[in-house]
Design a protein around this nucleic acid. Sequence first.
DNA 1: CTTTGCATACAAACGAGTATGTATACTTGG
DNA 2: CCAAGTATACATACTCGTTTGTATGCAAAG
Lengths: 205, 205
Amino acid sequence: MARRTKAEAEATRESILDAAIEVFLEKGVSRTTLEMIARRAGVTRGAVYWHFKDKNDLFTALAERARAPMAELADSIRESSEGNVLEMIHEVCRRVLKTFVDSKTQREIYTVLWSRCEYVSEINPSVERQKVLDAESMDQLTKDFETAKEQGLLRDSVDPRAATVALMSLMKGMSILWLRDPELYEMPRYGEEMLDYYFTGIRRH
Amino acid sequence: MARRTKAEAEATRESILDAAIEVFLEKGVSRTTLEMIARRAGVTRGAVYWHFKDKNDLFTALAERARAPMAELADSIRESSEGNVLEMIHEVCRRVLKTFVDSKTQREIYTVLWSRCEYVSEINPSVERQKVLDAESMDQLTKDFETAKEQGLLRDSVDPRAATVALMSLMKGMSILWLRDPELYEMPRYGEEMLDYYFTGIRRH
DNA sequence: CTTTGCATACAAACGAGTATGTATACTTGG
DNA sequence: CCAAGTATACATACTCGTTTGTATGCAAAG
């Protein structure tokens, strides 16, 4: 095949990424071969190796593509919101769930990240990155809960660190279960209800 | 090497299973080769193929080894407990967390099941089984929450199905996070605290 | 005219499955 | 109770398909 224009090349790159998501979802990351991805994208392995160093590089590109919007979301809410810290946290959670409902791509990539690959840093550099990002957001959240505590928004018995881990656990668990089987419960309605239980459990009064 | 007695053969089988856990944890299921497992167990692939059909068979044996104690635990508490359904559920959760703390094997196998393998039923028959078991325990739990509701133990706003999914999510999230990094929080102390938040959020009064 | 964006061809490694070898534990008939 | 005979519990050896990485070719874009 003849050489493509820059625009066409970029389109090829995107179609490879799209194909990768599809095959990763179906087969799991480890069992998908670059040949499968290329075929699905309508190209050959040559094109894949031209755009990406190897499968890990491709995987990392996918992961980053999904994480950026989530990070932006959290930042924007954090900035735009004033006053009640607990409400801010609550809003971020709601918006994360809504993102899963609204964006097919986000759903699919996070499904791959959480259910179609093995959490082994040795091989998967994206896992190391995820660890770091998770730790960062946990620390941020803990600070938020600490100020919430200072502002008297939390029950006396509630420990900020435990509240942090509990919320992260709940969000992760909810997301994983729903992404694996969207029929399990109606999102975001039930998701928000579950969040309410949590916040009812930690909020004062 | 010469033929072993039955007892020795059984010991070999166990050592292969133990070796499999180790290597699965380190490399992830898909990247571990039967050669690695055999070498770690001090035998050759011949022994592995003698005791197990293939890697999936080995994996399934491991999974079943871990699930049985958990199922027994839930059943025994369900039978021995009388009265308050919510307390019964709470107790099961506490005991599950405690099992992770107490049993290294349980910790390791569940880490493999949840973080070192890909959730793809096509390849991994153990995933299908897990789906079924999860669905069963979810249904059972929903029934329990329904009776709790009838007994007036839950807030009016709480839906039994949502309470079910929320608890499963919380438990799964807590377990995954802690198994991946036991330094993240102190188990079972913090784990029980997090459970308290949840039950405070759904319990009447 | 050079570089780009691929397709094609090639080599090498690896892992799975299986076939075969074999010493010994068990078993069974005498 | 003992001697064959048989099945067992592996180790070793071999084959085969798959996948990866790279090298090379080539037409059009820049």
